[in-house]
Amino acid sequence: MHPDQFNELARNRRSVFPKQFVPGKQVPKEIIEQILINATWAPNHGQTEPWQFSVFSGGGLKTFATFQSELYKQSSGENFLQGQYQKLQETPLLASHIISLGMKRTTTKRIPEIEDIEAVACAAQNIYLSVSAYGLGGYWTSGGITYLESAKEFFGLEEQDKLLGFFYIGYVDVPSPSAKRKSLDEKVIWVNG
């Protein structure tokens, strides 16, 4: 790969939200598998590979939608909002696939928890770049039930693990607009001696 190709990929990656997907168009399983393989090549301290993915497609999208909307309903108490409940039921059905992003806590090595979290975030970035390379749309959300302890078991996670969100994938119907970034001068300190 020429550096210019990677620069273009990294700089043109965009979040594409489920309402921007082509309704009902399925991404082939083989492409999703390649995206997941790319995710597992993310850097991780001690080669612990702390990620745990669950992939929902087809009827699994409805299973996911039902689980998250009902858990939201049970756990929200007086903060329950019917609109949020409906959104949690309907939005997953707009995607081709949804991947849960779990962090399985490293217990065999003395690695700080934050480094396992960072490794899963790197895996999510590999997913983002892969989705873009395949000409698909993707969106990492940490909303809804992401941080509820009671959600973990459904995604194969245990008490010491963390659920870091969900990655929605679909074909792009409505592209996201171009984005801007601040200049390097505003974010970088050069130390030259």
Rank of each mutant, 00 (worst) to 15 (best):
G137K: 07
V120F: 02
R181V: 12
A124E: 03
P3Y: 07
G60M: 07
H2M: 12
T66S: 15
F166W: 11
G165K: 02
K19R: 14
D116S: 09
G144V: 06
W51R: 00
R105P: 00
L163R: 05
P43T: 01
G143Y: 05
D173R: 15
H97D: 08
S75T: 10
T91N: 10
D161F: 04
K73C: 05
G144C: 07
L184Y: 11
V174M: 11
E118N: 15
N12E: 14
S178D: 14
Q84Y: 12
R14L: 05
R110V: 03
E49F: 07
G46K: 06
R14F: 08
L157M: 01
K104W: 02
S76K: 06
S142F: 03
D161E: 01
L93W: 09
I145T: 13
L88Y: 11
M103E: 07
D161G: 03
H2L: 14
L129C: 00
I98P: 03
E8S: 13
G193I: 00
Q74M: 12
K62L: 10
K29M: 05
W51L: 00
N192D: 13
N79A: 12
P112H: 05
E90C: 01
E78M: 10
Q160K: 15
T108N: 14
K29L: 08
Q74P: 02
A65Y: 06
F53C: 08
R11L: 14
P43H: 04
A95E: 04
S54F: 02
I111A: 05
L71S: 02
I127Q: 08
E159H: 11
K109S: 02
E78C: 03
E115H: 08
T108D: 13
H97S: 04
L71E: 01
P3D: 05
I31Q: 14
